[in-house]
């Protein structure tokens, strides 16, 4: 949770140097903060806007990043982000303070994307009911042996962010579930509901997606010389062969 605090700070300084709402109506603000917070219906419009600005707006870099990867087009991504925040503001009374705001906003993003921008996405999401017996029945072997997993960790630590984004984008049908679980931190049930797939499929796609992602990142790390451990290399080539024989489903 603390890991992206840095990016939020820089986002704040670069984007909010136009007058924030908190300055525009500081008089209303102090009045609003004195009002009783328990009765949602009595929340003033100013208080609502202030809360929204402080809590929801800082999520914009993550929301915009997701929108960009989904639409693959900056102009569509901007429309999607605008729609998402407008809907979220309109529904702000329904958000329960103290619950997972990030998951709530990303739910709105997912819903907006599926309904307005890419009706195909919903159909694609439903295309295949995945087989998840594979991992349930114990295909849980590690990609690498214990001794080389610390080398894998070290290698992953050095990989550029672009490689991680690119690898995510290559996950096919697993991409969206991995993103919603890992970045949006949405509960499985919420992901299942938004994508119109069973919870078992969410689990299956998350497990397989993460495995595929680790394989891709490890391959890249070896190719580009981020890894020197020869044991890791031979482990990974085994993993890659295994992927090739079971792959092709994206």
């Amino acid at each position: 949770m603390t890991s992206y605090a840095g990016s939020l700070v820089s986002f704040k300084t670069t984007t909010l140097n136009s007058k924030p709402m908190s300055e525009l109506n500081s008089a209303q603000k102090s009045a609003a903060t004195e009002a009783t917070p328990k009765a949602k219906s009595t929340k003033s419009a100013a208080q609502k806007a202030l809360e929204f600005e402080q809590l929801a707006i800082p999520l914009m870099p993550q929301v915009y990043g997701m929108a960009l990867r989904w639409t693959k087009n900056p102009s569509d991504a901007e429309d999607l982000v605008q729609d998402t925040f407008a809907k979220a503001f309109n529904a702000w009374d329904q958000f329960e303070q103290g619950t997972n705001l990030k998951a709530w906003i990303f739910r709105i993003l997912t819903n907006t994307q599926i309904n307005s921008y890419n009706k195909k996405a919903k159909d694609q999401a439903k295309v295949s009911i995945d087989q998840f017996e594979e991992w349930q029945l114990g295909d849980v072997e590690s990609l690498t042996s214990l001794s080389s997993r610390s080398a894998e960790l070290e290698a992953l630590d050095r990989l550029p962010a672009d490689i991680i984004k690119q690898s995510l984008a290559e996950l096919g049908e697993f991409q969206q579930v991995v993103e919603l679980a890992v970045i949006a931190e949405m509960p499985y049930a919420a992901i299942a509901e938004e994508l119109g797939i069973p919870v078992g499929t969410v689990m299956s796609r998350l497990h397989r997606g993460k495995k595929k992602l680790r394989e891709k990142l490890l391959d890249y790390a070896i190719q580009e010389g981020y890894v020197s451990d020869p044991k890791l290399k031979s482990d990974s080539s085994k993993a890659t062969q295994a992927t090739e024989t079971t792959g092709g489903n994206s």
């Binding site: 990016s7 984007t15 915009y64 605008q82 992953l156 630590d157 991680i164």
Partner: peptide, 30 residues
Amino acid sequence: FVNNSIQDACSEVPPQELAEKVLANIRAMQ
């Protein structure tokens, strides 16, 4: 660790214009 790496890698600073539009929109709604 992989989850953290994904989270770190996947934020994008939005264009200034977009951030302003979103804020203006909310002010108008307010």
